[in-house]
Amino acid sequence: MPGTSDTPSTPSITVTPTLTEILVAFVTMSLSGFGGVLPFARRTLVEERRWMTSEEFNDAFALSQFLPGPNIVNFSVVFGARFRGLAGAAVALFGLVTPPLLIVIVIGILYARYGEIAALARALTALGAAAAGLIIATVIKMALPLVEEGLSPAPVFALLAFAAVGIMRWPMHWVLLALVPLSIGVAFFVHRGRRA
């Protein structure tokens, strides 16, 4: 994240969206969000509607990523609550989740009925293979900054999480209960060491 967040170069946004505007924005974002909503969220909220500055968006999204659970879903709540309180949070969440929920239920019904048709099954297998490739590319893009940081404990924790959950197939909550406190503790002391 750029270190410019302290300078008042970007004035805070004064326009407060109405509930209807929030709903429309999140429905639109959700329905255009093929393969993830984040890029569309940034474009809609920061570039088009200008309800948030880029820094405000990054900050709100960092919080949503830090919280467990679906990031963009968390983000919708943080965003809605910031502008319109509880009602805003509910409307943003509703707008984000409902349209794809309905679509995917229809697909689920079709899948239950036709999923065994050979050609369709093969198409889905191929889709799954491609989707796995998409995640691999995303992971590499995310991991590069960790490696480029040089000597830091971060890659070790990434590898441990990968091996324990991906290869050993241990239950995720046990793995995380062990790894997360350790990783945060190490980060705490490494950070202090760098400051000193």
Binding site: V139, F157, G166, I167
Partner: peptide
């Protein structure tokens, strides 16, 4: 520290996802 500690674990889990799928 919270953020710095959680990021690599999230990435490790995503890598596990890619592997499993």
């Amino acid at each position: 520290a919270l953020q710095a500690g959680m990021v690599p674990i999230g990435i490790g889990l995503m890598a596990a996802s890619a592997f499993v799928v």
